[in-house]
Design a protein around this nucleic acid. Structure first.
Lengths: 190, 190
DNA sequence: TCAACTCTTTGACTTAGATCAAATAATCAC
DNA sequence: GTGATTATTTGATCTAAGTCAAAGAGTTGA
């Protein structure tokens, strides 16, 4: 059996996992691992699966004038995928990159579809867990407007305390929408 | 019967509406109307329903140092509610204000819960329609970072072409995270 | 219809943070 | 380990947009 405890815990946080659902999940989930710098997903392809991070760190980024702009970070116990590409099954602009050696459990889009069809509670899980990410995204919009670079960084430290020391400064800067130089100066203030 | 065509169309865009679901929806939906400036939801209370806008224009805002900061606008054919308050059933910081005389069809939280329990396809509808809003929110985050005030306004014009002329400039400015004066100068350029 | 708001524009000045450039420091591949 | 990348810091400007202030326009209600 796969060591899928963290995944079951995540799902179990939102819904009760029946035995058939548990079995169906464990049967379909696939383990994979990526070395540092490897892409879990490439903008030139359709996103065909969702990856649950068992161990490691991943970022979503896109290219703007050749620059890699970080859209978000995900670590242990979180799902990563390229949302619009996965839902619409068309390519979009995002890349998923492992920032550390990363182990994942993944579900293919077709398996996800099967689980949604057979287990309505999986629909609920998806709705509720997406709602939670949605809330964070709203907070982020709030923090991007009307706040100084200093406040943006302070907010990031509060919300990403656990992974802060694992991230290169330049990626944090692009996530916050400020330059590397400015972030370096802000950090030096302490 | 209530003139719920737009609502059924919205739902029907994501799922097939069975006759029992259709009946259950029409039975539970309640019409309401609000005059300009009236609050559909007040931060001091728990958000107990979701409102589908039949006609009119609504904004979500919160207070920051006494200033009303606009978080988003919604018009005909869209749902409005205070997401985190509705889901968690605890108060949060947001107000919903009618910017025009507004007619809505609303569903109480308990009725929503009932529909989710009895009709799994409603879970799917909620998941998929939230996914679509989620995508727009991601685009907005992108547009808030690394773009000049000019570009933010241009992006807003593209994405909110239909309601642009119905919105006071100050509210658009706070939505974009720029000052009223700056937005006024940008508009004057044309 | 007129007074009292509220909303929008315009002007002068200030500043946070961007840009450009170069020097360190850290990491990686061989 | 050592040279080559890559990441971070520091410094000197520059500029977009904020702040403060006041004048015009538009609305609204008695």
């Amino acid at each position: 059996m796969l060591p899928a405890d963290a995944l079951l815990l995540h799902i179990g946080h939102y819904i009760r996992i029946s035995e058939p659902l548990r079995a169906a999940l464990l049967e379909r989930v696939q383990a994979a691992s990526y070395h540092k710098g490897e892409l879990l997903h490439d903008a030139r392809h359709v996103c065909t699966r969702s990856d649950f991070i068992q161990q490691g760190l991943v970022r979503l980024y896109y290219l703007l004038d050749g620059e890699k702009i970080t859209e978000y970070f995900s670590a242990e116990g979180e799902w990563v995928n390229s949302p619009s590409s996965l839902v619409k099954q068309t390519p979009d602009i995002y890349y998923l990159e492992a920032l550390e050696p990363t182990q994942t459990l993944s579900l293919q889009a077709q398996d996800l579809g099967y689980l949604f069809d057979i287990f309505p509670e999986m629909e609920r899980y998806a709705r509720l867990s997406m709602g939670s990410v949605f809330g964070h995204l709203m907070d982020r919009v709030t923090s991007l407007r009307f706040t100084s670079a200093r406040e943006k960084y302070a907010h990031f430290c509060r919300t990403h305390h656990d992974i802060l020391h694992r991230l290169p400064l330049g990626m944090v800067a692009s996530y916050l929408g400020i330059t590397q130089e400015t972030l370096s100066r802000i950090r030096a203030e302490r």
